[in-house]
Nucleic acid binder design. Sequence first.
DNA 1: ATCTACATCAATGTTATTTCTTGACGCAGT
DNA 2: ACTGCGTCAAGAAATAACATTGATGTAGAT
Lengths: 203, 203
Amino acid sequence: MDKDRLLQTQAEPLLDHFQKMMPLSNTEKQLITDLFKPRLYRKRQYVLQEGDTCNQCNFVVRGCLRMYKLDTAGNIHIIQFASENWWIMDIGSFHGRTPSELNIDALEDTMVLQISHENLLSLYLQAPKFDRIFRVLMENSYVALQKRLLQNISANAEEKYLSFIQTYPHLTNRLPQTQIASFLGITPEFLSRLRNRQAKPKS
Amino acid sequence: MDKDRLLQTQAEPLLDHFQKMMPLSNTEKQLITDLFKPRLYRKRQYVLQEGDTCNQCNFVVRGCLRMYKLDTAGNIHIIQFASENWWIMDIGSFHGRTPSELNIDALEDTMVLQISHENLLSLYLQAPKFDRIFRVLMENSYVALQKRLLQNISANAEEKYLSFIQTYPHLTNRLPQTQIASFLGITPEFLSRLRNRQAKPKS
DNA sequence: ATCTACATCAATGTTATTTCTTGACGCAGT
DNA sequence: ACTGCGTCAAGAAATAACATTGATGTAGAT
């Protein structure tokens, strides 16, 4: 009884998240509570490592994760951040059941709710409503990704940065600039200079 | 050819370790080189997390790991440190194939050679000599553990600390005192006072 | 009742690590 | 030659981790 309440409480942010999209029955809530497991990752800890198959779909409750690709020279290129109420996983690896080329790790101590591939399939079977919910989530992600791509191929560093602080105001002062630079695809030094330029509107 | 040499080099400390106990044939060396994989853990990174089943048997090449238990109040109790040439794993979880109640994480950037449960079984089949080697290792560990238990139930804080610096002189100045205190089961503050007392032999 | 062996909490000092900024310089494209 | 970026190295600044100390408390031994 108490234990159920505790789990329910842990899953709360996720239930809220879903219910902003669509009302849930008690059975559905219970399913979510049962199938998503809370897990804590500490700063720098890997959630997914290149070469492993992504087997968990992660919803961030608090903290912040990043997903990145290591190039052959060892440089990291950040694909996505995920802070509160974001989803993160390697979708290709997760659904294709193939080894991932990406890494996910924690920029802060982070608590996620995660569901395994197996349990997600089981969720779809037991509650087809989630087919729809996850379809909508996918659409949103797709749009965000397309926007990011567009930015990336068309904008210069300053524009990218301005767009970043508009899109992710809550991350701008929360993350080290190194990370933001890596997300934007510029050097931290150059980002530092960009910001200075802004501070002093050209004299 | 080059690649083989490189792997051989990486496995070197482990081969040495075994050969101090018993000579190895080339076939056996090759087996070890093949079945033990090098892996780097960064400071604070988990090697094993409570709830997961321990699937790797780890030999520390350089760096330092710790194994600990979290109590219900969230205090950590360090069971074991493992620096160069030590083994670390949750033996119960590893052999029983059950979820672990323990955590293992890195106190320093640490390089290990690890063999999976599956590959260890395969090693025993292919080279029964390792049955004996690991039996001896187990015996040594058992003795060390028993000694630690004895210390723990019979000695006071000062005695425990003195015994620690005698048994692990190389760790005494290498690890933060917080960690040593947690290993000894006393508070860092009290350890600090103990050390001060020693410095000034009572006036 | 008091002494010893420890604990807890809070404040402060010390050291190490991480992050940011700046300067000097290079290079490719307008 | 100028603009938009990059690289490398050095230092400054911010933050986090660790150690020490004082005040105060408690349980058990004497």
